[in-house]
Each structure stands twice: as structure tokens, then as C-alpha cells.
Design a protein around this nucleic acid. Structure first.
Lengths: 251, 251
DNA sequence: GATTGTGAAGAATTTCACAGCT
DNA sequence: AGCTGTGAAATTCTTCACAATC
């Protein structure tokens, strides 16, 4: 749980489970692809396959948004795109600042999917005076000294931190003090923020470590006398068109 | 559920919940920081605060690994570092290949935390012939044509995909065919892989969309007559030093 | 006949709260 | 006295299975 303002039935049924929220972008992407191919309708089964989940979960997820499908037919692609976009708040434009324009910050600035869906890179900020003025992805880098002014001038509420770990908390504090209430953190640190501020983190080395855990487990199982040994034998019951992604759970 | 070989009590109690596995790297990072400051022992309360979780959860997590603490005292930092490292499989060296050396791939190649903890960038691979031979982060980029050979020669089992979305599935297929069984995907696509292969994904735009959802909700609440209105009011019961970070992972 | 929407069952995860050890 | 380890309760998430609807 991340949102501040705690414990209260959230007014009236504004109760979309967090797990569902986290999947909406996945559905939206799949739907956008269908939309571009001018597919008019899609069944829960097809859409679920495209998004990499199972269809019961998808239907349950959609049920929290409302009844947007037609029984016997499926979902209208355009309509669903709109409804999910609206639910996610993507019908408005979110100015975003990226702080820390090193390799990663530059990569993020250049990332196309950024602008495509409701987000706009309002400014790039770096502590290195030599960077100031240099354009990255067509946007001139500004100096950290002006951080507060930039936030205010652009009415930014979402900040991306791509600085080294050591600078992250300090940058975070300044962003929050200047009015940012959502932070996407790429620095490998736990940020502490006041209540009411959301933080999400993206951490390469954590993801790799989780993979290493599973990889090690595979190696171990292989060694222990297993009938079929070696990885990659394609059997296993059930599991339909889900296919990927951990979840593991031995027993 | 993803890992092949299903349904079996996993020999003997090798049953660490996935949610716990996902937090072990967090604990490890906090412990490593303590270790560097030569702190000998730490309580569940302190460590939990440093890792950004609550202490009951941390103790429960550790209970799956064994009884590594001392009642009335806490945990021995060095010992725990070792135990968690071992559990995660970080006492061995994992050669990793990065495919797609654009902005992001280069950022990943330069990422320090990579080498630091059990991972070694064995090779960089890109489809652009002009990139071939050019060093990135001190490692010469190799051409996609040699992908299979590179995987074999370096005994790689973990691959990182940082290509454009359109190329990701194809690269994935080749990696898997060549023997890779764990994939970290930065391309905004759902990859399909055979059973027994783990995929984790890191997706900037999904994270941003989740933030936008919460941001929108805040704005809405603000508008609807709320007592304290406006974000950032620091009250709220309970919640201790937890505060932030959703934990991501729908994967 | 096909497919949605959803109660109810089941599984996983988190939190509580305290017994048990040092 | 302090802090871990853990059953049990509470909560959240997933899956099942089928009635309702087109």
C-alpha cells in the first residue's frame, strides 16, 4: 500500500485493488495495439492472452471498472481504451521532470513511450554545471539550483529520479518540498517521503537477484535426481496461455 | 506460476514465498550498508526501517530462511549477509549478456551495481553492424549474428533485453534456444517463453501510469470536500516507518 | 452458442500478538 | 528486559464455475 490518506472506505466504492491498477497499463497497451490494427472487438480470452494474464483475472479486473463488455460478444476496443485511459488519468497531460541526466537519465529522456501516453518531459535537471544548456533528446538540461522554480513553473507533480544513490534522498526531499507528490525512483536506495507522496522504484539489481534465485533453484533441481532433468522440457499441466513470469511457489 | 517442474513438495521445505524472495535483495542491500559501516548486529526493527518494510514482515521473511537471529539481541550482520547471499545464489558468479545497446543498454552496461553483486557483463550484443567492435563501458559490442556462440562460449543463463519492442520477442526466442533460462525484459512487450524460463520485466511507462492513477486520485480527493485537503499533510495513524514503495511486481 | 460479470472458494500475503529464548 | 520466531487472524489476490445476457 502506498497512497497516503489511510484507512477509510475511500468515499464510495472508489476501491480498485492495487493489483488491478498495476495491470491496467498492460491491458491498455494490448488494446492500443489492437486499436492500431483496427480490430473492433476482442474477447476476454484473446485480450488476456495478449496481455499475458488469464481471462478470469482480466474479467474480474474489468468488473471493478464497470460493465464495459457485451455478453456473447466481447469488449469494444476503442471504448475500453478510453475507459482505461480515463481510469488511469491519462486523458490529461502529466508534465514530468527527470533529475540526473547520466546514461540512464538520457535513456529515459529519449524513451519514446514516454510522450506517447499522457506524459510529457517538462524538464531535465542535472547537478553538473557542464551539462547545463546541453540538449538531451532535444531538451536543454537545466541546473539543479533551479529545481524548485522549474517544478513550480511547469506545475509538475511527477518526478523521476535517475541520480546516483547518494544524491537520491536529497533530490527527493527537494522535489517533495517543491510540490511533487509522485516519484519514480531509479536510484538503488529506499527513499523516505512524507505521507501522501507515492514512490515507486525500478531497480535493476533487485530484478537480477530475483532471477538469480530462480536460476539457482533450477540448477539445484537439475542436480537432484530428477526424471527429466535439464531445463526447458515443455510439459506441465494446466496453465493455459499464461506462460511466463515467476510466481513460482513450490508447494 | 512459471518455473517448470510443478507440484511437488520441493524435496524438503525449499518453500520460500515469492513475495519474500522479492524482498531479500532489499534486506541484502541494507545489510551491506551496515556491514560497510562495521555495524556488528542489527535488530529486526532497525533493519526493517532501513529496508523500508515493517519489522513483523521482515521477521516472518527471515523465518523462512531459518533461525539466524538471537533473541534479545538481533541479527549478526555479516552472518545474515552471507546467508541471504547464499539463498539468492549470489555466492556464485552469473555471466549476463545485454542485447540492444542503445541509450538504455549502454546505461545498463555502465551500471555499477551490476558487477558489485555476483553479476558480470559477459557480452554486449547489438544488431547494428556499425556498433560492432565499439567499446561500451569498456566492453566491445558484438553483432547479433554471433548471439548463439556468445551464449555458449560464456555459459550464459541470464539475458537482458534492451532492444526496441519490435525486436524483443525474436531476440528472446534466440536467447532461449541458445540456453538462456532467465530473462530481464526492458522492452515494452509481453514475451512468451516456454515453461521453465523465467521472465521479469521492467517497464517505465507502466510505472508512470500507476503513479498517474494515484496522482489523479489525490487530485480528486482534494476537490471532493476533504477535511485536510491538499496533499502532504503529515498525519495518519500507524504505518510506522514503512511509508513508501508499493513493491511493484505484477511482472 | 458464446462470452461476460460475479459470488464464493481457495491461495497467498500481511499483520497481530505473544510465547520462548538470551 | 529485550527481541526473535511463529501460530493464528485478517486482508488481499486469484481462480473457479455458472447464472445472466446478448
Amino acid at each position: 500500500m502506498a497512497t497516503g490518506r489511510t484507512h477509510r472506505p475511500a468515499t464510495r466504492s472508489r476501491g480498485i485493488p492495487e493489483a488491478t491498477v498495476a495491470r491496467l497499463p498492460l491491458y491498455l497497451r494490448a488494446l492500443t495495439a489492437l486499436s492500431e490494427r483496427s480490430v473492433p472487438t476482442v474477447s476476454s480470452e484473446e485480450l488476456a492472452a495478449a496481455a499475458g494474464v488469464n481471462s478470469a483475472k482480466l474479467r474480474k479486473d474489468f468488473s471493478y471498472l464497470g460493465s464495459y463488455g457485451t455478453r456473447g460478444v466481447g469488449y469494444d476496443v476503442e471504448y475500453l481504451v478510453y475507459q482505461i485511459s480515463r481510469e488511469l488519468g491519462l486523458t490529461q497531460d502529466w508534465p514530468v521532470v527527470i533529475v540526473g541526466i547520466g546514461n540512464l537519465g538520457a535513456a529515459l529522456a529519449n524513451y519514446g513511450g514516454f510522450a506517447s501516453r499522457g506524459f510529457r518531459v517538462a524538464a531535465l535537471i542535472d547537478a553538473d554545471p557542464n551539462m547545463a544548456g546541453k540538449p538531451v533528446a532535444g531538451i536543454p538540461v537545466q541546473h539543479t539550483d533551479d529545481l524548485e522554480r522549474i517544478i513550480h513553473d511547469n506545475d509538475v507533480s511527477i518526478g523521476v529520479i535517475a541520480t546516483p544513490a547518494g544524491a537520491a534522498q536529497q533530490v527527493c526531499d527537494r522535489l517533495v518540498a517543491a510540490g511533487v507528490t509522485s516519484i519514480l525512483n531509479f536510484a538503488p536506495t529506499v527513499l523516505s517521503v512524507p505521507d501522501g507522496v507515492d514512490v515507486r522504484k525500478v531497480d535493476l539489481s533487485i530484478e537480477l537477484q530475483i532471477l538469480a534465485f530462480h536460476e539457482q533453484r533450477k540448477a539445484g533441481e537439475e542436480a537432484a535426481g530428477e526424471p527429466g532433468a535439464v531445463a526447458g522440457n515443455p510439459e506441465d499441466p494446466g496453465q493455459g496461455p499464461d506462460g511466463d513470469v515467476p510466481a513460482v511457489m513450490p508447494a
